[in-house]
């Protein structure tokens, strides 16, 4: 399990404070789950002493995707559904950066679904946070891919006709996915521990966060909030630290490296399984491919080009 206590006796050259990671003040609705995620991320950066200039938060479009503006780091607020291609491109030649991706249920599971699955397969080192509030918020209450069936929305006034996408089950089923975890916005300690656990993962960690939307989905997760039996903490030496939460919530021992077990748990929606559901630390990392040859001298490059030109030379 990850332990953040720094036992090295070297003094840190630079010590950061929470304020170093704080950007523009958020303008999300009061009690929106996004606030929790932002705070956890800022605390994580501070606890890990990540240099702000070496940290990049990438997002798509949507309420949650405003998050980079509220960080004191580099940020990339990109296009709807397209955070992951941008993040993969940033990672391609920059092993030195810490990369976080913030996306929403519409951003990730609808317009960006293709990129989502392929980013899971690329498995480049980054932490992907799916802020899943089961609704389109910014555009005002349209059905999202994870909106429960029969929910009345502005695009389905008589109730959403289809069962929702299960992002956890979908992610696990993608070839070469390597880290799939689930959190809820009302347990910040667990969310923080999950983010922390993700930092020691070599590839792409995908964390789905079940979130409230007090404005458009009022009370839709109340049943899970009010009944502690409706959450289930997954425990494992390889998993997410559960801390004091075990006093309140039921725990289930779960080996995340067992794909069959993980697949079974991924299908479980009530109670909500929380923690690391699937882990494959030996999954191939595409960044190992893209970062080959980063340090190549100008002389080596010039001689490689000359050798190529020779192939086409006629005189």
């Amino acid at each position: 399990m990850t332990n953040i206590t720094d036992w090295t006796l070297e003094p840190r050259m630079r010590e950061f404070e929470l304020g170093d990671y704080i950007g523009a003040a958020p303008r999300w609705c009061p009690s929106c789950g996004n606030h929790t995620v932002l705070k956890c991320l800022q605390k994580l950066c501070k606890d890990l002493n990540l240099p702000p200039e070496k940290t990049v938060v990438v997002s798509g479009i949507g309420c949650s995707s405003r998050l980079p503006h509220h960080m004191g780091t580099y940020g990339f607020h990109s296009l709807h559904g397209r955070a992951l291609p941008v993040a993969c491109g940033i990672r391609a030649r920059r092993p030195d950066l810490s990369i976080f991706v913030v996306t929403g249920d519409g951003d990730c599971c609808a317009i960006g679904a293709g990129h989502w699955l392929h980013a899971l397969r690329y498995n480049m080192k980054m932490t992907v946070l799916l802020l899943d509030n089961n609704i389109y918020g910014l555009t005002k209450k349209q059905t999202s891919p994870t909106t429960p069936a029969h929910t009345r929305t502005n695009t389905h006034p008589n109730g959403a006709p289809l069962d929702p996408v299960n992002p956890i089950a979908t992610a696990i089923s993608m070839t070469n996915a390597s880290f799939v975890a689930q959190c809820v916005d009302w347990l910040p300690e667990h969310l923080y521990n999950t983010l922390l656990r993700a930092q020691s993962h070599p590839g792409l960690s995908f964390i789905r966060i079940r979130q409230r939307c007090p404005h458009f989905m009022k009370g839709h997760l109340d049943a899970f909030i009010n009944d502690t039996d409706k959450l289930q903490l997954l425990t494992d030496p390889n998993g997410v630290a559960t801390g004091s939460l075990t006093q309140t919530y039921k725990t289930v021992s779960h080996d995340p490296t067992d794909i069959a077990l993980a697949t079974k748990i991924s299908r479980q929606t009530d109670p909500i399984p929380l923690g690391l559901i699937y882990l494959n630390e030996s999954a191939v990392r595409y960044d190992e491919f893209t970062q080959k040859g980063i340090i190549t001298s100008e002389e080596e490059k010039l001689s490689a080009i000359e050798a190529e030109l020779d192939k086409f030379a006629i005189t």
Binding site: R82, L84, P85, C88, G89, R94, H115
Partner: peptide, 13 residues
């Protein structure tokens, strides 16, 4: 789309 998105990410970096 991803091809140019990846390129833009590399450019930003």
């Amino acid at each position: 789309i991803s091809a140019i998105g990846f390129a833009i990410g590399a450019s930003f970096a």
